Amino acid sequence: MGFVRYGRGVAHDAPASVETSVEVRRSRRRTATVSAYRDGDRTIVAIPARFSRAQEQEWVAKMLARLEHKERRRRPSDDELVARARDLSERYLAGAARPTSVRWSANQGRRWGSCTLVDGSIRISTRLQGMPSWVLDYVLLHELAHLLHPGHGPEFWRLLEGYPRTDRARGFLEGVSFVQDEPPGADV
C-alpha cells in the first residue's frame, strides 16, 4: 500500500484554531483517482503512490475544499433554510406558505420537523443534517404545507403531490426511523 503520512488541517465547521488530522494514504493500486472522506476527527485522502509531494499537497487541498463544499451543501445554515423554504413554497405551493422563521432544532425528539401555526415558525431536526438534499426539501415542504393545512387530510397530501420525490423521501425517512428503532409511520 505504500506509506501513511499524517498532516494537519482545519476542520470544516470548527473555529480556525481547532485542527483535525489529515491522513494521506498512498496506494500502488490506485493509478489515477483521488478520494477523500471523513472518519471521525480525521480526514482520509487516498492518492496514487506515484504522486509527487507537490501533487499530494495540491490534491489534499482540492479534496478538503470539495469535502467542505459538500458538507456545507448538506448542512445549510438557518438563513439558507429560510431561503430554501421560500424557494420550495414558490415552486410547489405557489408562494402561499410564508413561515416567519425556519431554523434547525436539536430538541425535535422523534420528529423530523415541526410547524407552529400560532406564530408560523418551522423547526427542522438537526438529525436531517447530512441527509440527501431531496429529503430535507421534502421535510421543509411538509412543514410548509402545514402552514396551509394543519392536519394530514386529503387537502394536505394534495399539496405535496407536486414534489416529485415525496414517496422516495418518506420511504427514506421510514428506513432511517426503523434503523433508529423508532416506530414506523412516526409523523414528520
Rank of each mutant, 00 (worst) to 15 (best):
A46M: 11
A97W: 05
S105P: 06
E68G: 14
Y37H: 14
R170I: 12
W112M: 10
A14G: 05
T100I: 01
R53P: 11
V176M: 11
G185I: 04
A36C: 08
L140S: 08
S77T: 15
G171M: 06
R28Q: 05
G95A: 02
H146V: 10
A65T: 09
Y138T: 01
R103W: 02
L81N: 03
M63E: 09
A96F: 00
R72L: 07
Q57N: 12
L81P: 00
P154V: 10
R110A: 11
S77D: 08
R98C: 06
R72G: 10
Y163G: 02
E58G: 00
F51S: 01
E23S: 05
L117D: 02
P99Q: 03
H12M: 08
L88Y: 04
E143K: 09
A36I: 05
S21N: 07
A16Y: 09
S125F: 09
G95T: 10
T116R: 12
D119Y: 08
G2Q: 07
A145S: 15
D119P: 08
G9R: 10
W134L: 11
P132V: 10
V18Q: 15
S105H: 12
T20Y: 02
H142W: 03
S27L: 08
D187T: 13
A145T: 12
H12P: 15
E56L: 05
G9E: 12
G153K: 10
S121N: 13
E80A: 15
D79W: 01
G109T: 02
V118R: 15
Y6K: 14
